[in-house]
Design a protein around this nucleic acid. Structure first.
Length: 425
DNA sequence: TCTGGGGTCCTAGGACCC
DNA sequence: TCTGGGGTCCTAGGACCC
């Protein structure tokens, strides 16, 4: 009985905040308004790059991702600020709260942009009226400018919101595609970066119009599944739904840092890993998840970057465990060359409650029911005392192999330890 | 004295299993 | 003597986005 009526076309909005970080700073400190302002990755430090800049700064040629020193050369009076993520998160929450006033179908994509499906919100007015209302409200309540795209799907809405900045509203209909979209270069497309654009050029495709008519076999062989996808998009086809839940499904949590100078001293690098591990652990805990795979990133002096990861038999969250695996991976794969950047990332995240349930399968009898945290070396250490490493060695248990994998400790092994609380009694 | 930090998704090879 | 085909998991790298 489905599809008895022709499916109604969707109405999708893409709301995109204009130079978000810079605008938030201006909203907090209006004396910044009208000035060329840049938010730089590392603040004033060396190797900083422009993360966002105000439109006044753009007039001087300052652009996102430009190294700070270059931006200052172009614009000597540039006001440079370090990012204040707390502020941006607060502003972001305010913005999404406003969006949800119009519909529940709000999908945040990043801190400063989101999609809305207002197909069923017609009682609030026409799509254009709704967009105008949203824009006005965000400006009045948060003092922040945004651009909005209105279209029948995500891709076109995203493309539309990009067309008038700042404070634009753009409607992009299917019938506008040949005149508005097709003359543009493929690199203007969301999803087509430098490499893909280059590859397309080699098969004689320059414009989105040419891509729309491209040979699917050829596109697929050159670009894989993405080739098919971008061809569809070029034809204005995009059936992805607006999914309000998608934001809560994290896939990874990581922290990385570019070192103030290139370092080749292992001791120093280990200290950096420890501090990264701390951050990652705090974030894992805040999100109530554990990492089943841990990875490190090493960028060398020459910017060559490698990643190394390890699937863990048991998920981890404690900073000692994160640090331990990270150092292990680093020690195993570092070639001794000077390091520019280090990073630690947790993948395959599992919810805390689920992780504990999984453990119950291996439950160490009543012990495990009371103390499901037994899955990590650090909690083992807490429970069985600081000497667990040594004792494990005495028992010929390979702790390196078993970091974070207490399940491979057997019950007898665990019982062989006096319990800490009993010791203290 | 060039190029941050947070992510997602896709691909491809090898190990391993049936 | 010679060697299929499919599937999953793990790892590493690359492209892209904000």
């Amino acid at each position: 009985m489905k599809e008895m009526y022709p499916k109604k076309g969707r109405v999708i909005l893409h709301v995109d905040m204009n130079s978000f970080y810079a605008s938030v700073e201006m909203a907090y400190d209006p004396t910044l308004k009208g000035k060329p302002l840049a938010i730089a990755g590392n603040g004033e430090e060396r190797r900083g790059i422009i993360v966002t800049c105000s439109y006044e700064a753009r007039k001087f040629g300052v652009k996102t991702t430009m190294p700070l020193w270059e931006a200052k050369k172009l614009c000597p009076h540039l006001v440079v600020m370090k990012p204040n993520f707390e502020r941006y998160r607060a502003a972001s929450m305010g913005m999404f709260e406003i969006l949800r006033h119009y519909t529940d179908f709000v999908e945040p994509v990043s801190i400063d942009e989101g999609y809305m499906d207002i197909t069923d919100s017609y009682d609030l007015g026409s799509p254009l009226e709704i967009a105008q209302s949203i824009q006005k409200r965000i400006l009045e309540q948060l003092d922040l400018p945004c651009s909005i795209g209105i279209a029948p799907n995500k891709f076109l809405a995203k493309t539309a919101s990009d067309m008038k900045k700042p404070m634009g509203i753009t409607v992009l209909r299917k019938r506008d595609i040949p005149t508005v979209l097709w003359p543009l270069n493929t690199s203007e497309m969301h999803g087509v970066g430098k490499k893909t654009a280059e590859k397309l050029t080699t098969i004689g495709i320059q414009t989105i119009g040419e891509l729309a008519k491209g040979n699917e076999i050829q596109l697929k062989s050159f670009l894989g599944i993405n080739g098919i996808r971008i061809k569809e998009r070029a034809n204005g086809i995009d059936n992805r739904p607006v999914d309000p839940e998608s934001v809560s499904e994290f896939k990874s949590i990581g922290n990385s840092t570019t070192l103030p100078r290139d370092i080749s001293n292992q001791q120093e690098l280990f200290r950096v890993l420890e501090s990264l591990a701390e951050t990652v652990s705090v974030r894992l805990k805040r999100k109530n998840v554990l990492a089943s795979t841990l990875g490190i990133t090493i960028r060398f002096k020459d910017r060559k970057t490698i990643t190394r990861s390890k699937k863990l038999a048991n998920p981890i969250q404690q900073k000692e465990d994160v640090a331990s695996i990270a150092k292990q991976l680093f020690g195993k794969h570092w070639n001794g060359n000077a390091v520019r950047l280090l990073g630690i990332t947790g993948y395959d995240l599992v919810e805390q409650d689920l992780a504990y349930k999984q453990l119950d399968i291996f439950s160490f009898e009543q012990d495990a029911k009371k103390e499901p945290l037994l899955n990590t070396v650090s909690s083992l250490r807490e429970k069985y005392g600081k000497n667990i490493i040594e004792t494990a060695a005495a028992h010929k248990v390979d702790l390196d192999q078993n970091v974070g994998t207490a399940t491979s400790f057997n019950k007898d092994f665990l019982r062989s330890f006096p319990q800490k609380d009993k010791e203290e009694q």
